[in-house]
């Protein structure tokens, strides 16, 4: 997966980490936080609203912290980060079946091969 995929078919997702659990969350379409990337709201990569959300979250860290933008592209209709670091955040560690991949409610992105 490369940045080229993002460039041609890319969206932005607003991500952060839960203040209490520390785990990765994504901003959903209803402005609620979801723990699963497939449920995240997709912003057009030129939509200033995504960055505005991150700026707002920098000022209000009452529920989530470390807000950032994640660049994703659609693969078979499912958002997938182009950067492997974000695949780890969306999935969990590759040496143990823990984190989001262990929650079978949703299909998470396929992990990064070595």
């Amino acid at each position: 997966m490369t940045k080229a995929a993002f460039a041609s078919n890319g969206f932005l997702v607003v991500s952060a980490q839960d203040l209490i659990r520390g785990d990765v969350v994504y901003l959903g379409p209803d402005r609620h936080w979801t723990r699963h990337l497939p449920d995240a709201q997709l912003f057009d990569r030129n939509d200033p609203e995504a960055a505005a959300q991150v700026e707002r979250l920098a000022l209000d860290q009452s529920a989530v912290i470390a807000a950032s933008l994640v660049e994703v592209f659609l693969s078979q209709g499912i958002p997938r980060p182009w950067h492997f670091r974000e695949v780890f955040r969306a999935t969990g560690p590759s040496n143990r079946f823990l984190g989001k991949q262990a929650d079978q409610r949703q299909q998470e992105p396929e992990h990064v091969p070595l």
Partner: peptide, 25 residues
């Protein structure tokens, strides 16, 4: 948690107790 301390104020306090924020938590 009750908002008296901001994240910026709290971060050095948690680090002094060995608590970091990493990729999954």
């Amino acid at each position: 948690l009750d908002g008296s301390l901001s994240e910026d104020e709290f971060r050095p306090l948690r680090l002094m107790n060995g608590v970091y924020l990493l990729l999954h938590g």
